[in-house]
Design a binder for these strands. Sequence first.
DNA 1: AAGAAGATTCGCT
DNA 2: GCGAATCTTCTTA
Length: 172
Amino acid sequence: MVHDIDSIRLSGRIVETEAYPVGDAAGHAFRGETRRNRSLFLERGHAYVYFTYGSSFLLNVTSETPGVGAGVLLRAIEPLQGIEAMAGFSATTRLADIGRGPGRLTKALQVDLRQDGLDLCAAGPLWLAAIERKTGAINKSVRIGITRNAHRLLRFYERGNAHVSGPKKLRR
DNA sequence: AAGAAGATTCGCT
DNA sequence: GCGAATCTTCTTA
């Protein structure tokens, strides 16, 4: 995930995600389109950003065809470029905490409502890049912080990566 | 029009 | 590990 701001490049490797597929009662699109979630209905590869708990912005990548609401929540990144700048935006000092958690991720990358609806697969300030990097084993678990439809194994993370959020049991 | 819940984080213990 | 902070959105009356 890359965000170019003020001639600085902020980027990180996505190491943890959660899926919110079509028909999932835990997904924001479940009850239809509203002003808040309208970006979630954009074609796959667009950003859906929303504000929650009075404190945090959360970033999703849409995953379906236009008019169908579904997406993937980005829960954690391993910082790659602009690390010092991201540390400055972050409330925490430890490297492993800068991108650890969906709210911290957006804070580090300086993502807020201004990026809502952007095409992440096109040229622009916020975009998804392919990188050469060996990937570890990908594990799955239940999703974190939800109550409805909570049993499904729709959280995916790189096993043992220090930048993955959640309790220890959910990082192995 | 009012109230409850929420895809969280931070500070304490 | 637990509770407060904080505010938008959706639900219910």
